[in-house]
Amino acid sequence: MIPSAFDYAAPETLAEALSLLGSAGDDVKLLAGGQSLIPVMKLRLADPSMVIDLGRIAELSGVRDDGDALLIGAMTPHHQVATDPLVAAHVPLLAKAAATVADPQVRHRGTFGGALVHADPAGDLPAPALAAGATFIIAGPGGERRVAAADFFQGYFSTAVGDGEILTHVRVPKYTGWGAHYEKFTRVAQQWSIVAVAAMVRVEGNSIAEARIGLTNMASTPLRATAVEEALAGSPLTLEAITAASAHAAEGSDPASDLNGDAAYRKHLAAVLTKRALVAAAGL
């Protein structure tokens, strides 16, 4: 199928985009990379009367140093996040996760912010953003507001970005010197994650000083594996300690059951993948 007819606009500034969004009514869609929007428009599951393409707004792209954090533009392609030296040095978890998104074509066209606003529970970027304590910067008719990652993801394909608003940047604290790993499980290459785990570990001597862990596809939104984090804080840097802590990975989760596996299978996977991610992040 092909999409229904629609009006198309390609503003060159954020102000122009917000103006168009405010005047277009309810039947409008924002186009970032288009990797999610275009397929559903072709199936006519989305049938907007207007599409506003954000691709020409230069201020929404790129990675820059912002003191104790990195500021990543919402229109930055996955490939740039995966290969940017600032991201690799200060938030390696995001680089590792972005490098696993789909295939090279999607990573060059799809955008960091677009994937986060899409909020697919199986998407590979929400859980790392949550684990890293990211802050989402949203522009709207009332000005700019900031939303913590814990409050940003609100349900299946649902976020805190409201009508008439645009996600402009994601601010991510620096974790310089932390170990990081993103471990995902799929049945076939380039499939959505059945379960995945985003892990960051700060090691001091022979101990794990702190760990931050996000779970992908274990509920309608990404989750922090807080029971594992608490068990690891101050624990010895040993395989035995990581194994014991990882057994708690699925606590508080609510995974779906589908053709890829039932809830019990996903909970088992969460423990297995958490152990693997932590071992890699800790350098064991």
Rank of each mutant, 00 (worst) to 15 (best):
H78P: 08
G33F: 13
K174W: 02
A196E: 05
E16L: 09
Q80M: 07
A231Y: 11
R187K: 11
R56D: 01
V81W: 04
V172S: 06
W178R: 01
F152Y: 05
L93S: 00
A271W: 04
I213T: 00
L43S: 00
D47G: 03
G162F: 13
A32E: 11
I137Y: 01
G67N: 14
A119E: 12
A88Q: 12
A227K: 09
Q154M: 10
T274G: 07
E210I: 09
R171S: 15
A129C: 15
A247N: 02
L237W: 04
G62K: 04
R56L: 03
F153H: 00
G164Q: 10
V203M: 05
P104R: 15
G33Y: 14
Y265K: 05
G73M: 00
Q190P: 08
T226V: 10
V28Y: 14
F6G: 01
G62I: 01
H90T: 01
Y156W: 05
N217Q: 13
L273I: 12
A82N: 07
R44W: 02
G177N: 02
E183I: 08
V63T: 06
D26Y: 03
A58E: 06
G33K: 11
L21P: 05
A95W: 02
D258M: 08
G34E: 11
Y175W: 10
P11E: 15
P92L: 05
R64Q: 04
A280L: 09
G22P: 03
R212I: 04
A233L: 05
A249T: 03
L239Q: 13
S158D: 09
A199V: 06
L116M: 10
V117A: 07
L45I: 02
G133A: 13
R202E: 15
V101N: 03
R64G: 04
P48Q: 00
M1P: 15
D26V: 05
W178N: 02
A247I: 00
L14S: 04
L86A: 01
A127N: 01
P236R: 13
D258R: 02
F153S: 01
R145P: 12
P77H: 09
T13W: 11
E204A: 14
E210G: 06
L239C: 08
F112R: 02
V87P: 01
M218W: 15
A245R: 07
V28E: 08
Y175E: 01
L20V: 12
A250K: 00
R109F: 13
A32W: 12
V161W: 06
R56N: 04
T111W: 11
L94F: 07
S49V: 02
A148I: 03
A180F: 00
T159K: 09
A98Y: 01
L70C: 13
N260I: 09
S23I: 12
F185G: 14
A102I: 13
L21S: 06
A139T: 00
A160H: 11
G55H: 10
L94I: 07
K174H: 00
A211V: 03
R56P: 01
Q35V: 11
Q80A: 05
H181Q: 07
T176R: 11
T76R: 05
L284H: 15
E12M: 10
T216E: 03
I72L: 06
E230W: 08
A129H: 12
V147N: 05
G177H: 10
